[in-house]
Design a protein around this nucleic acid. Structure first.
Lengths: 200, 200
DNA sequence: ACCTGAACACCGTTCAAGT
DNA sequence: ACCTGAACACCGTTCAAGT
């Protein structure tokens, strides 16, 4: 039978259900980032990947910069989990430093786009909030405190982070083009940094 | 009197003289980079700065990526000069390390856009040629050789470069937001790195 | 409540036409 | 030999109209 209250139905039409979601969009953007680079991470490519038209994305995210920021924050979250797993609270600091550095390096090689988003960020509107970034520092700060003592903990943590992020950024960028064993240079650096920071 | 060979003049019309030059374009692009960021470095903004229309730029440079690369190469050239001046061939290595690190840091703070172009490069088409990048390493390699000895020179040089570039990249990015004395952390890192690499 | 086509501003790049 | 306007493809974003 014909619907007797089609007018009412039209007025109270069931709102169109989402054909995508913020989580799916962020995931698609992260994949596009690694596949095409930050330059190729466009609203159009992401929209095509999740199966909607570009304007629809604006119902879920505030725009491209905001989307890049969400991708960066998700990546920091993943990195925090990796570092926490590699360097548990009660682990011996020298071994923990080695494990955390190796975990960061693996992350950088697996997801160079995400690594760059975290350590070579663009305009402020695309950067993770400071609260998110702070959490990632916790394991390094613990290691630095045990190695260098509380008075130098902050400086030591910054030395570790600067060296590791700088090394991996160079490796990703292909700055180690000519010769040498990159693995050996990384191990050498880890050992020297650990020596240098250890309370004497 | 009327020119009797105006036809010939038209045929052999003096070619339009350049209203700009590659050097002026690269300079304008470098200024735009620092003033507006890499995102704001557009063919339109550069053209306006040198006083021509955007298509005219293509008579002097191959396109935006090529222009970015020229800016990067010019910046590397400037940096090489700064490092060479800060750490002369015959200087004592520990002092030279301190001076070179300080020079790099000053460069990064003065020209963050150029610094990022060198140490956090984008697509290959925008990167300085490897030959240019190699020259910048020379003073660091000399210092590393004297500190760590020839066998570990390459690894030591990579440790120095990774730490310094990572530290300054973080500082430029504002990653040292919360507390602590950044100058002290830099001095601490310099001293610890020098200790760690010194032949024992 | 979300999706869409159309539209606008902006950018990189090409090209025929000017001088 | 260089400069220009016009044009094209592409991108981010807005908005009225659909369901």
């Amino acid at each position: 039978m014909a619907n007797v209250n089609s007018l009412a139905d039209d007025r109270t039409a069931v709102p169109a259900p989402s054909r995508t979601s913020r989580a799916a969009i962020v995931r698609a953007a992260a994949e596009t980032l690694e596949a095409e680079g930050l330059h190729g991470l466009t609203m159009q490519s992401v929209a095509a990947r999740v199966g909607v038209r570009p304007p629809s994305l604006y119902k879920h995210v505030d725009g491209r910069d905001a989307l890049v920021r969400l991708v960066a924050e998700a990546a920091v979250g993943d990195l925090i989990a990796l570092l926490a797993a590699a360097a548990p609270e009660d682990s011996e600091p020298r071994g923990a430093l080695h494990a955390a550095a190796a975990a960061l390096r693996t992350f950088g090689k697996d997801r160079p786009g995400a690594f760059r988003l975290i350590f070579s960020p663009g305009p402020p509107s695309t950067r993770p909030g400071p609260d998110v970034a702070l959490l990632a520092v916790a394991p390094v700060l613990r290691i630095a405190t045990e190695l260098a003592g509380p008075d130098d903990a902050l400086e030591a943590a910054r030395t570790i982070t600067a060296w590791a992020s700088g090394f991996i950024a160079m490796e990703i960028a292909g700055a180690f083009g000519l010769g040498g064993d990159v693995d050996r240079a990384f191990d050498y650096g880890t050992a020297r940094i650990a020596d240098a920071l250890s309370r004497r």
